[in-house]
Protein backbone atom coordinates (compact mmCIF):
# COMPACT_ATOMS: atom_id res chain seq x y z
CA UNK A 1 0.00 0.00 0.00
CA UNK A 2 1.04 3.60 -0.38
CA UNK A 3 0.71 4.43 3.32
CA UNK A 4 3.73 5.55 5.31
CA UNK A 5 4.31 4.64 8.91
CA UNK A 6 6.49 6.33 11.49
CA UNK A 7 7.23 5.19 15.02
CA UNK A 8 6.66 8.20 17.27
CA UNK A 9 7.11 6.45 20.62
CA UNK A 10 9.12 3.28 21.11
CA UNK A 11 8.88 0.89 24.05
CA UNK A 12 11.28 2.87 26.20
CA UNK A 13 9.67 6.22 25.42
CA UNK A 14 6.24 4.81 26.29
CA UNK A 15 7.61 3.46 29.56
CA UNK A 16 9.08 6.85 30.48
CA UNK A 17 5.84 8.64 29.58
CA UNK A 18 3.75 6.25 31.66
CA UNK A 19 6.17 6.58 34.57
CA UNK A 20 5.88 10.37 34.42
CA UNK A 21 2.09 10.20 34.20
CA UNK A 22 2.06 7.92 37.24
CA UNK A 23 4.15 10.40 39.24
CA UNK A 24 1.84 13.24 38.19
CA UNK A 25 -1.22 11.25 39.25
CA UNK A 26 0.34 10.54 42.65
CA UNK A 27 1.44 14.15 43.06
CA UNK A 28 -1.89 15.66 42.14
CA UNK A 29 -3.90 13.24 44.29
CA UNK A 30 -1.35 13.23 47.14
CA UNK A 31 -0.92 9.46 47.01
CA UNK A 32 -3.20 6.70 45.86
CA UNK A 33 -5.84 6.69 48.60
CA UNK A 34 -9.32 6.47 47.16
CA UNK A 35 -8.01 6.24 43.59
CA UNK A 36 -9.34 3.75 41.08
CA UNK A 37 -8.03 3.15 37.56
CA UNK A 38 -10.50 2.50 34.75
CA UNK A 39 -9.17 1.72 31.27
CA UNK A 40 -11.22 2.15 28.13
CA UNK A 41 -11.36 -1.03 26.03
CA UNK A 42 -9.44 -1.96 24.22
CA UNK A 43 -5.94 -0.70 24.88
CA UNK A 44 -6.73 1.74 27.67
CA UNK A 45 -7.31 -1.17 30.03
CA UNK A 46 -3.77 -2.44 29.34
CA UNK A 47 -2.33 1.02 30.05
CA UNK A 48 -4.39 1.23 33.26
CA UNK A 49 -2.85 -2.07 34.36
CA UNK A 50 0.60 -0.66 33.64
CA UNK A 51 -0.06 2.50 35.70
CA UNK A 52 -1.32 0.28 38.51
CA UNK A 53 1.96 -1.67 38.44
CA UNK A 54 3.96 1.54 38.55
CA UNK A 55 1.97 2.91 41.49
CA UNK A 56 2.77 -0.33 43.26
CA UNK A 57 6.49 0.08 42.44
CA UNK A 58 6.60 3.69 43.56
CA UNK A 59 4.38 3.71 46.63
CA UNK A 60 3.90 0.02 47.33
CA UNK A 61 0.14 -0.22 47.22
CA UNK A 62 -2.58 -1.82 45.17
CA UNK A 63 -5.06 0.42 43.40
CA UNK A 64 -8.30 -1.22 42.18
CA UNK A 65 -8.55 -1.27 38.41
CA UNK A 66 -11.32 -2.05 35.99
CA UNK A 67 -12.25 -1.71 32.34
CA UNK A 68 -15.10 0.04 30.62
CA UNK A 69 -16.43 -0.73 27.15
CA UNK A 70 -18.11 2.33 25.68
CA UNK A 71 -19.75 0.76 22.62
CA UNK A 72 -23.22 0.89 24.19
CA UNK A 73 -22.78 4.60 24.88
CA UNK A 74 -21.39 5.71 21.53
CA UNK A 75 -23.19 8.51 19.71
CA UNK A 76 -22.99 6.64 16.41
CA UNK A 77 -24.85 3.46 17.34
CA UNK A 78 -27.32 2.84 14.54
CA UNK A 79 -24.98 4.28 11.92
CA UNK A 80 -22.94 1.87 9.85
CA UNK A 81 -22.36 -1.73 10.84
CA UNK A 82 -23.11 -3.10 14.28
CA UNK A 83 -20.02 -2.89 16.46
CA UNK A 84 -19.02 -5.88 18.57
CA UNK A 85 -19.33 -5.26 22.29
CA UNK A 86 -16.58 -5.66 24.84
CA UNK A 87 -17.09 -6.30 28.52
CA UNK A 88 -17.30 -3.67 31.21
CA UNK A 89 -15.64 -5.04 34.33
CA UNK A 90 -15.74 -2.76 37.35
CA UNK A 91 -15.98 -5.08 40.35
CA UNK A 92 -16.04 -2.29 42.95
CA UNK A 93 -18.19 0.74 43.79
CA UNK A 94 -17.27 4.06 42.18
CA UNK A 95 -19.15 6.20 44.68
CA UNK A 96 -16.89 8.80 46.32
CA UNK A 97 -13.76 7.51 44.57
CA UNK A 98 -11.38 9.49 42.39
CA UNK A 99 -11.46 7.78 39.01
CA UNK A 100 -8.45 7.93 36.70
CA UNK A 101 -9.87 7.19 33.27
CA UNK A 102 -7.17 5.83 30.95
CA UNK A 103 -7.16 5.72 27.15
CA UNK A 104 -4.51 5.27 24.48
CA UNK A 105 -5.28 8.23 22.24
CA UNK A 106 -7.56 11.22 22.66
CA UNK A 107 -8.90 12.55 19.36
CA UNK A 108 -12.42 13.97 18.97
CA UNK A 109 -13.28 13.46 22.64
CA UNK A 110 -16.40 11.48 21.78
CA UNK A 111 -15.09 8.24 23.26
CA UNK A 112 -14.29 10.04 26.52
CA UNK A 113 -17.79 11.55 26.60
CA UNK A 114 -19.24 8.04 26.17
CA UNK A 115 -16.95 6.66 28.88
CA UNK A 116 -17.95 9.38 31.36
CA UNK A 117 -21.63 8.65 30.73
CA UNK A 118 -20.94 4.95 31.24
CA UNK A 119 -19.20 5.60 34.57
CA UNK A 120 -22.00 7.89 35.77
CA UNK A 121 -24.50 5.07 35.16
CA UNK A 122 -22.47 2.79 37.40
CA UNK A 123 -21.86 5.14 40.31
CA UNK A 124 -21.11 8.67 41.46
CA UNK A 125 -17.36 9.21 41.60
CA UNK A 126 -15.94 12.23 43.47
CA UNK A 127 -13.98 13.14 40.37
CA UNK A 128 -12.94 11.78 37.00
CA UNK A 129 -9.46 12.59 35.72
CA UNK A 130 -8.26 11.63 32.28
CA UNK A 131 -4.89 10.11 31.40
CA UNK A 132 -3.92 9.43 27.77
CA UNK A 133 -0.75 8.21 26.12
CA UNK A 134 -1.19 10.43 23.04
CA UNK A 135 -3.19 13.61 22.43
CA UNK A 136 -3.55 14.08 18.69
CA UNK A 137 -5.80 17.15 18.74
CA UNK A 138 -8.99 17.76 16.67
CA UNK A 139 -11.35 17.89 19.65
CA UNK A 140 -15.05 18.11 18.80
CA UNK A 141 -16.21 18.38 22.41
CA UNK A 142 -15.01 20.55 25.31
CA UNK A 143 -12.88 17.79 26.85
CA UNK A 144 -9.18 17.80 27.78
CA UNK A 145 -6.81 15.30 29.34
CA UNK A 146 -5.29 15.87 32.81
CA UNK A 147 -2.26 13.70 32.07
CA UNK A 148 -0.74 13.41 28.59
CA UNK A 149 2.14 11.17 27.50
CA UNK A 150 2.89 12.99 24.26
CA UNK A 151 1.18 15.69 22.21
CA UNK A 152 1.26 14.64 18.56
CA UNK A 153 -0.13 17.17 16.10
CA UNK A 154 -1.78 15.14 13.35
CA UNK A 155 -3.85 15.57 10.23
CA UNK A 156 -7.39 14.20 10.23
CA UNK A 157 -6.61 11.65 7.54
CA UNK A 158 -3.71 10.27 9.53
CA UNK A 159 -4.10 7.51 12.05
CA UNK A 160 -2.33 6.76 15.32
CA UNK A 161 -1.97 3.21 16.52
CA UNK A 162 -0.71 1.85 19.80
CA UNK A 163 0.40 -1.77 19.61
CA UNK A 164 0.75 -4.22 22.48
CA UNK A 165 2.55 -7.53 22.83
CA UNK A 166 0.92 -10.79 23.91
CA UNK A 167 1.39 -9.91 27.59
CA UNK A 168 -0.50 -6.64 26.96
CA UNK A 169 2.66 -4.57 27.41
CA UNK A 170 2.79 -1.55 25.07
CA UNK A 171 5.28 -1.94 22.20
CA UNK A 172 5.16 1.24 20.17
CA UNK A 173 3.04 4.13 18.95
CA UNK A 174 2.93 4.62 15.19
CA UNK A 175 1.70 7.50 13.07
CA UNK A 176 0.22 6.18 9.83
CA UNK A 177 -0.04 8.58 6.91
CA UNK A 178 -2.53 7.80 4.13
Amino acid sequence: MGSKEKVILDKQAIDRAVTRITHEILEKNKGYDNLVLIGIRSGGDHLAALIREKINEIEGGQVPHGAVDVTMYRDDVGQGVVRPLGKTEIPFALDNRHVILVDEVIYTGRTIRAAMDALMDIGRPSSIQLAVLVDRGHRELPIRADYVGRNVPSARDENIQVSFDEAHQPLEVRLIKP
Binding site: M72, Y73, V77, G78, D117, A118, D121, I122
Partner: peptide, 11 residues
Amino acid sequence: RDIKKVPTLRG
Protein backbone atom coordinates in the same frame (compact mmCIF):
# COMPACT_ATOMS: atom_id res chain seq x y z
CA ARG B 1 -26.18 -2.90 38.14
CA ASP B 2 -28.22 -0.63 40.38
CA ILE B 3 -29.19 1.44 37.35
CA LYS B 4 -30.16 -1.14 34.76
CA LYS B 5 -30.24 1.06 31.70
CA VAL B 6 -27.94 2.03 28.86
CA PRO B 7 -28.73 4.50 26.05
CA THR B 8 -27.76 2.16 23.20
CA LEU B 9 -31.10 1.85 21.38
CA ARG B 10 -32.69 5.16 22.27
CA GLY B 11 -35.11 6.29 19.62
